[in-house]
Simulated scan of single mutants.
Amino acid sequence: MTSTSTPSGLARFNALEEHAALAALHEACASRAWARRLLAARPYATAEDLYAASDAAMADLTTEDLHEAMAGHPPIGRPEPGDPASAREQSGMAGAPDGLKAEMLELNLAYQEKFGHVFLICATGRTGEQMRDAVKERLGNAPEQEREIARTELGKINRIRLARLVEED
């Protein structure tokens, strides 16, 4: 039997005042356009409805909006102090050997120089070696191709962060 009631975490999100909901969405993604679109579609009946709205908003972001979203992410291996989401998501780099961390720093810088934005990957569950291999591979992409890969990765990150936002009490 399927429940027709909205899960409590999602109901809590639906009930937030606009400024609080925007702040919560901004924690998930730095794009103001993405957050406004999700806010405008409230209330959500299911978490899947929220994720679908996130995916649609992500697909519609302009290049400028996408850059704004990516700017909210620290480089892999260097989460900002006080940013538990990035630290948790990048935990595969936390215990990496110093040599791998140094290599990742160099690769991050090369990537940023080539594409003009931080290397973005859904790091949850990935090892430091997997992230290093991904950045090495993606350095060979054309800018347009890489922008769309980053958009896809950002969509995955947003789904994970939204799931944490609306999880049950």
Results as ranks from 00 to 15, higher is better:
60 D>C: 07
8 S>D: 13
122 C>Y: 04
103 E>S: 11
135 V>H: 00
133 D>N: 09
112 Q>R: 14
135 V>M: 07
47 A>L: 09
43 P>E: 08
52 A>I: 04
13 F>H: 05
40 A>D: 14
79 P>Q: 08
28 A>P: 01
43 P>D: 13
33 A>G: 13
87 A>I: 03
72 G>A: 11
154 L>D: 02
81 P>W: 02
36 R>H: 13
83 D>T: 05
88 R>V: 08
161 R>G: 02
120 L>Q: 02
105 L>T: 09
13 F>L: 07
105 L>P: 04
30 A>K: 03
19 H>T: 15
85 A>G: 12
64 E>V: 12
28 A>V: 00
84 P>Y: 03
4 T>W: 12
150 A>I: 00
155 G>N: 07
86 S>L: 06
27 E>N: 14
107 L>P: 05
101 K>I: 08
17 E>M: 09
164 R>N: 11
78 R>Q: 15
7 P>K: 12
38 L>P: 01
158 N>G: 00
119 F>D: 01
17 E>W: 06
74 P>C: 08
157 I>K: 00
74 P>A: 15
40 A>F: 08
150 A>L: 05
54 S>C: 05
16 L>D: 05
17 E>Y: 04
52 A>Q: 15
115 F>Y: 11
112 Q>F: 06
120 L>V: 15
45 A>G: 15
101 K>R: 12
145 Q>G: 03
76 I>Q: 00
67 H>P: 05
63 T>W: 02
92 G>A: 12
109 L>E: 15
73 H>Q: 09
86 S>G: 10
121 I>F: 12
16 L>I: 05
169 D>E: 09
52 A>Y: 01
134 A>G: 07
165 L>R: 03
15 A>G: 14
162 L>Y: 04
125 G>S: 09
10 L>A: 10
144 E>F: 10
15 A>W: 08
18 E>L: 13
86 S>P: 04
103 E>A: 09
47 A>K: 05
76 I>V: 15
76 I>H: 00
123 A>I: 08
